[in-house]
């Protein structure tokens, strides 16, 4: 399944300065894994010893994956996976 991963501005330098990356995957976890294969610097920004970092929030078509099936949430063609970090400034 071809899904588009939206990369937030602070992480773009680690993903070839791209705003989005398209990958083939059947779950959210697999999609993020593919992203890290394409852009290895993303690995340590998103994961800590294989666990998703606690300040990284993932949304699938604007739904929080934590009330779906977390990283096992299935994805289908055209789905949009967004990495959304908290915004601190003010």
């Amino acid at each position: 399944m071809a899904v588009k991963i939206q990369i937030p501005t602070p992480l773009r330098p680690h993903a070839g300065n791209l705003a989005s990356v398209e990958v083939i995957a059947i779950t959210v976890g697999e999609a993020l894994g593919e992203l890290c294969k394409l852009h290895p610097a993303m690995e340590q920004r998103l994961f800590d010893n294989g666990q998703l970092r606690r300040f990284v929030n993932i949304f699938i078509n604007d739904e929080d994956m934590r009330y779906l099936e977390n990283l096992a949430t299935p994805v289908k063609d055209g789905d949009e996976v967004a990495i959304i970090p908290a915004v601190a400034g003010g």
Partner: peptide, 9 residues
């Protein structure tokens, strides 16, 4: 959790 110091703009 908040992003660790230095990891966010």
């Amino acid at each position: 959790a908040a992003p660790s110091p230095g990891s966010a703009d």
